[in-house]
Each structure stands twice: as C-alpha cells, then as structure tokens.
Simulated assay, not measured.
Amino acid sequence: MPNSELIVIMTTFPDLDLANSVAKILVEEKLAACIQIMPTMTSTYIWDGKLCQESEHLVLIKTLASNYASLAARLTVLHPYQVPEIIALSAIAVEQNYLLWAKSILM
C-alpha cells in the first residue's frame, strides 16, 4: 500500500467507555487521525460453535496505510476480544484537504 493512501479500519467494541478510551489512546499516539464510534448495533456470529448475538459499537479509524501494522498491533493489545475484528478498507477517493489534514496529524 502506498504511504500516502488513506485507509479506514473497522473494529467493534462491546462497551462504549472502552471504545472511547482506546480511541483517545490511538489518536494521542498518532496512530489514527480520526476515530468515529457508532451507536449500539447487534452483531450476529458464531463463536466456539455457538450462535451469538451481542450488542457492540462499530468503530471507524482513519489512518494512513503505512500505519496499519503499528495500529493493528496496538489495537490488538488494547482490545478486550481474543480475536478482534481489524479490517482495513482502502479509500478509493479522499478529498484533498482532508488527506492533507490527516497527513499533518500522522506524519
């Protein structure tokens, strides 16, 4: 991935306070330029062979592709789940001023 490419990382948290706490850490450590935490949603999945439905918060993390490995490693340490969802999506287009702002925060 090119160093200047903006990506959006998706993850989920079971608790709003924990999501907010982790968001602050990632931004303060300059691993993310901006993090948005969505209201409660329901996730349906299979874990240990059982069908589960849990309330979670979707967290969207904006960063540069060059930060992915460091951010994923830090998020794994901070996350309460044994196997956290950490999915990076490439942004096919980013408004130039937003990209410049993100770069100014992260570089």
Rank of each mutant, 00 (worst) to 15 (best):
P39N: 03
V83R: 04
H79Q: 10
L60A: 11
S66D: 01
S70W: 05
S70N: 13
T63E: 05
C34R: 07
P39I: 00
L60H: 10
I46L: 15
S70L: 13
V83W: 00
Y45P: 05
D48F: 03
G49N: 08
A73I: 08
D15G: 01
I86L: 07
W47P: 09
P2F: 08
A69K: 13
I92R: 13
A23P: 03
N97D: 11
E95P: 02
L6I: 15
M38I: 15
N3L: 14
V94N: 03
S43C: 10
D48N: 15
C52Y: 12
N3E: 15
P2E: 10
N67Q: 11
A33N: 01
S21C: 05
Q96A: 10
P80F: 00
A88N: 01
M1D: 04
I25G: 03
F13K: 10
M107S: 11
A23I: 08
I46P: 10
A88I: 07
I86D: 04
A19L: 11
H57T: 07
E28H: 06
P14D: 12
Y98A: 09
T44D: 06
W47E: 07
I87L: 12
S55R: 13
A23Q: 02
N3M: 14
I46W: 15
T12K: 11
A32L: 08
L51F: 08
I61C: 00
N20K: 15
L51I: 13
D17E: 13
H57K: 10
T76V: 08
L106D: 05
T42D: 02
L75H: 05
Q96W: 06
A88G: 03
Q36E: 13
I25S: 01
L89W: 15
M10K: 10
Y98E: 04
P84Y: 00
C52G: 00
A91G: 08
L99Y: 10
K62L: 05
A93W: 15
A65T: 05
G49H: 07
E85V: 05
A65E: 14
I35F: 02
I9L: 11
